[in-house]
Design a protein around this nucleic acid. Sequence first.
RNA 1: CGGGAUGUAGCGCAGCUUGGUAGCGCGCCUGCUUUGGGAGCAGGAUGCCGGAGGUUCAAAUCCUCUCAUCCCGACCA
Length: 604
Amino acid sequence: MTMRLSQMLFVTLREDPAEAEIPSHKLLLRAGYIRRIGSGIYAYLPLMWRVLQKVSQIVREEMNATGAQECLLPQLQPSELWKESGRWDTYTKAEGIMFALTDRQKRELGLGPTHEEVITTVAKDMIRSYRQLPLHLYQIQTKFRDEIRPRFGLMRGREFIMKDGYSFHADEESLKKTFQDMHQAYSNMLRRSGLAFRAVDADSGAIGGSGSQEFMVLAEAGEDEVLYTEDGKYAANVEKAVSLPADAETSAFTSFEKKETPGTETIEKLCKLLKCSPTQVVKNVLYQAVYDNGMTVLVLVNIRGDQEVNEVKLLNELTKLAEKYGGKTILSLTVPDPENQEKWAAKALPLGYIAPDIGDEYIAANKQVNSKFVRLVDKTVVELKNFVTGANESGYHVVGANWNSEFKLPELVVDVRKARPGDRAQHNPEQTLKSARGIEVGHIFQLGTKYSKAMGATYTNEQGEEIPLIMGCYGVGVSRLAQAAVEQSYDKDGIIWPVAIAPYHAIISIPNVADAQQMEVGEKLYHQLNQAGIETILDDRNERAGVKFKDADLIGIPYRIVTGRSLKDGKVEIVERATHQSQEIAIDDVVSTLKQWIAEKIQK
RNA sequence: CGGGAUGUAGCGCAGCUUGGUAGCGCGCCUGCUUUGGGAGCAGGAUGCCGGAGGUUCAAAUCCUCUCAUCCCGACCA
């Protein structure tokens, strides 16, 4: 085994590569852990691979401890399976993320972005009886997703390593137990990897299902916003978060009246002109949804003027309505721009002055466009009295309006409001929501019977009835987790790996390789340490001491041993990477000392 | 896909406005000196100037098309 730096592929960069934006990406490139091969495609170089194996091993141990069984599923998947589950089109067309290909026999195949279809097929073939349940299979493998915009190195690659697990149950209770076990296992994995994290309520996204939790590594560069309360009782992805909105102010208007309000196409301008609070305004937001059968539906959302629409919640509400319009899912949800409006509007819309009752005659007759607006009213406006809203005429608003007097209250009352930092919490209004940024490294959720029903994966229960398997699904981004660790732990000199996932525990830096004594002690310690199970590399390069120290800091090995000037007292220097604290230790005590330090840092 | 930007030596960049012998720093190679925080001196190698077409006596530079990469928005571990 080569662990001498003079013989390793060891190339560090002095400057930040232009392609990297965030610290962890820059550092992994500079320190020689990864190289970009194509957009969102990276080579994991020897140091990186060791880190990934450490993370994988922690994941594996925690999974095995719950009774889950490791397996390995194919990455090439026949399109038939995806057609059975109904996901082939949504995953390959439009903004789909699956790489699809046709082989020489004209068979259609997909490169696995996830494995519900494959695992459900296995379950369908092999699970017959409730006696075989519950069952939990998992794998650690490269996944392929044609991300629209790969970003930040390993954070959002088109090829990445993931642990995905799928559990099968006879009943909800059993599913919930495994879900709880996974919550614990995931917490253990992240704790053992040395990360600061938070488990949050989440939206279950395109995969479907309910009862969903994400594990967020807290870091400024995180792509997700997390809202939480300081009492620790609530934490959610902003996409999913709920809260109590600020109370609405009492409207100053007492009678219904139409007012001329020129140039007030925004709430802010309107409130300034009318001297009213945004909480008294009913804002009417127009969306355009396209279902997977090509049907376009115009959506009008009424929401309080001081609030914003949460598009994820809106998407979920509209997906519930999909059947009504002959679709299964939504391909796109956008605020229609002027160019888009021309495609369906019969006449110019009074933008900025739309009222909740804007007429359906604005929609031109077209087979591909639903002839009526879908009208959704957010909870925040249901109780408003004497409110302000548009007059369906440019330059005019109405004031003192009331539901079921001037305007009919839409039937569909929904929560599509975006929760915000500073809002009061639902579980305890004394608590306000705080915001943090996070990197999603894990996601666990209760799938239910979505796939088992679609693919006919059933078992026979004690009563002899044939029932669809109840499923759960649990993912960890292994390569993402590794980079997230760097994002959370670095300084101006480089990476500071948590000991548990560092590629090596220790590095022996020989300041002067021409000095026979320094070399001799270095070599001796190198063998002793590795023999004692302390993973150690030896920097025996013919470089100046400064170069070696800089490189050791950059690659982030937790402990550096220097066989330098302290040798005259029979000692070496040991420097802790995280703190740069150094102490001199007798050569004979190095192994036992490090063994103890490392054991303290690696939690089980 | 829409918006913005960039492609010049292994890496980071200048040169392009105003066309005329391809440059700088780092790294790399050789030698000497140095040797505890990215050394000094001397010498050296390295380029399809992203690709294709055009304009011109002449193109890294001007024009057209293309490809790739990065950044900002919708997707996700």
